[in-house]
Simulated scan of single mutants.
Amino acid sequence: MTTNLPKLVVFGEALTDFIREDNQRWRSTPGGSCWNVARVGARLGVPTGFAGTVSRDAFGDKLIQHSRQAGLDMRFTRQVERAPFLAMVVSRHPPQYFFVGENSADLAFDVDALPSGWMDAARIVHFGSLSLVRQPLAAHLLEIAEASHAAGKRISFDPNYRDLMAGPTYRSTLRRMAGLASYIKVSDEDLRGLFPELDEATALAQLRAWAPTASILLTRGAEGMRLFTAREVLFQPAFATQVIDTVGCGDACFGGWLASLLARPDASLASHLEFSAACAAATCARQGAYAPLLDDVAALVGAESPCIDFHP
């Protein structure tokens, strides 16, 4: 009998970023928006599973190694004999990238390989990013999202706009996912990419029309973030920190938000928002998509002890 299943289950892609440095050398690092969100949840002490598939090679092995180190529930992640999914980051300023992943490992996801009873145990189920535009994975994940919503689970959604999402096909996916979601995170850059024909205020209004009851977290980097609920709007300034690398900051922000909701259900929305901002700041202060620890958050919010005490 499968026991102790996680309360946060993250579906999506894990990949390897190849980043071109200034000296024209390439540096590889494990990544992927959904995988980053999962690692953040686990590192903050919330039982978390990353439901995705990676390659059985040096790149997949590194993803598995980092997943174990983060404390993810490894019953949710498979390795298969397929090519790795790669993101080639040609330039970071301005961002220029392309993806290599025809018939790659992430597309071999199999829902039947998940632990029995996972949906019953889950409280929040997260979706987003490239996994919702890459077929046949996207179709499978939409079915899981709809089934999870029907089962009364809270759905978390981060579009994490990339150029692959341009066009009418993804627009229908965006609308479907928004309608299912309890929590949506978008950046100002996401809104420009998702709704190029609209100004930001109109784009946000369109998203709200599709998701009238969702809590929408709008992030603006150093300008802070706003939380829009059906009843109120809250503002959280960014924490002052030395910015070393912004990679993974949005993922840390949303992963921290989800972890705080699960572990501190009685906390105020303002407190959850502060915790989320502290996670983003802690990641900005480190190289790479750093997944913050409770001590990192406590140092920023002024707490004397870790902020999360998870009760299953």
Rank of each mutant, 00 (worst) to 15 (best):
T3A: 13
T3G: 00
N4G: 12
L8G: 01
A14V: 08
A14F: 07
A14W: 13
T16E: 11
C34I: 07
C34L: 10
C34M: 15
A42H: 03
V46N: 08
P47L: 00
G49W: 09
A51S: 09
T53D: 06
D61H: 15
L63E: 01
Q65S: 12
R68K: 14
R68P: 00
Q69A: 15
L72Q: 07
M74V: 04
E81Y: 07
A87H: 03
S91C: 12
R92V: 13
G101K: 03
E102A: 06
E102F: 05
E102C: 00
N103C: 07
S104V: 09
P115D: 03
P115W: 09
D120R: 10
A122D: 01
V125G: 06
L130A: 11
L130K: 12
P136A: 11
E143Q: 14
A145S: 06
S148W: 06
D158E: 05
N160L: 13
R162P: 04
D163F: 15
L164V: 09
P168V: 01
T173S: 10
K185V: 09
S187I: 07
L191W: 08
G193P: 06
G193T: 07
G193W: 09
D199Y: 11
A209L: 13
A211N: 11
A211D: 06
I216F: 03
L217R: 10
L218E: 06
G224L: 08
R226V: 08
F228L: 14
A238K: 09
I244R: 13
C249H: 01
L273Q: 01
L273V: 06
E274N: 06
C279H: 03
A281H: 05
A285L: 07
R286A: 00
G288A: 07
L300M: 14
G302F: 04
P306S: 09
I308V: 11
